[in-house]
Simulated assay, not measured.
Amino acid sequence: MGPRTAVADRILLSAMDGYRPEGDWKQRVTAVALRVREAFGRHPQLAAVWGRYASGGTGSRLVMEELLQALSTSGLPDEEIPARYHRLAVLVAALVASEAAIGTAPPPEREQGLELFRVAVFGADPAHFPALTRFGRDILPLGAERAPAFEEILAAQLADVEATIAR
């Protein structure tokens, strides 16, 4: 494990520090995902490192173990748990890394990105981009409302797992 992945693993250790499984499997998965998001939110420059390489250390194993344990109590057949775990891990890593990337951009770069977004949306030719013209006023830039988006996307993935169980 390299120095950057070792630091990322310490962030995962801190995320799991004091964690006690509570609630049903969805509450447990959500709690771990939010803890990981919060921990990397304090160290956004390392979120992409974790998302690219994982860490392989104790922190990583603690997160993996809890997610697998939670999924094991969900009612999923054992043969589906590894694939569902992988989807959740990829989703959380991608969302955390994406949020971190936006958060680490310097203010001038963020403002430039926002201006490019405005030009793309509000400057769209209605003849070529009728849907963009129609919905443009209500579309948010990628950096907006990250917390609710994170939670809603995670909840959708968990609802998909739940639908699989119900079948």
Rank of each mutant, 00 (worst) to 15 (best):
M1Y: 12
M1E: 02
M1P: 12
G2I: 04
G2W: 06
P3A: 04
P3N: 08
A6L: 07
A6M: 13
A6T: 13
A6P: 07
D9Q: 04
D9G: 10
R10Y: 01
R10S: 10
M16K: 00
M16H: 00
D17Y: 01
G18M: 10
R20H: 11
R20L: 15
R20Y: 08
P21F: 05
E22V: 06
E22T: 09
G23V: 04
K26F: 03
Q27G: 13
R28Q: 09
R28Y: 00
V29A: 02
V29L: 10
V29S: 05
T30N: 01
R35L: 12
R35M: 08
V36Q: 05
V36K: 01
V36L: 02
E38Y: 04
A39E: 05
A39G: 00
F40M: 14
G41A: 11
G41M: 05
G41Q: 10
R42F: 05
R42P: 01
R42Y: 06
H43Y: 12
H43S: 01
P44Q: 14
L46K: 00
A47H: 07
A47L: 06
A48E: 15
A48G: 13
G51C: 04
R52P: 05
A54K: 14
S55A: 15
G57L: 09
G57I: 04
G57K: 02
T58D: 12
G59R: 00
G59T: 09
G59F: 00
S60T: 14
R61C: 07
L62E: 11
L62A: 10
V63G: 07
E65F: 09
E65L: 02
E66V: 03
Q69H: 15
A70G: 03
S72I: 06
T73W: 02
T73E: 12
S74N: 04
D78R: 15
E79W: 11
E79F: 06
E79V: 09
E80H: 14
E80W: 09
E80P: 11
R84C: 06
H86A: 14
R87L: 07
R87A: 11
A89V: 01
V90C: 03
V92I: 13
V92F: 10
V92D: 06
A97V: 12
A97Q: 01
E99I: 07
A100V: 04
I102P: 02
G103T: 10
P106K: 15
P108Y: 09
E109T: 13
R110G: 09
R110V: 11
E111H: 12
G113C: 10
G113N: 11
G113V: 07
E115H: 10
A120L: 15
F122S: 14
A124H: 11
P126Q: 08
F129D: 14
P130A: 10
A131T: 15
L132G: 03
L132W: 03
T133E: 08
F135R: 07
F135K: 07
G136A: 12
I139L: 15
I139K: 04
L140F: 04
L142H: 05
L142K: 06
G143A: 13
E145D: 14
R146K: 08
A147V: 09
F150L: 11
I153D: 00
I153T: 11
A156P: 00
Q157S: 12
L158N: 03
A159V: 00
D160Q: 13
E162G: 08
I165P: 00
A166R: 13
A166H: 07
R167G: 13
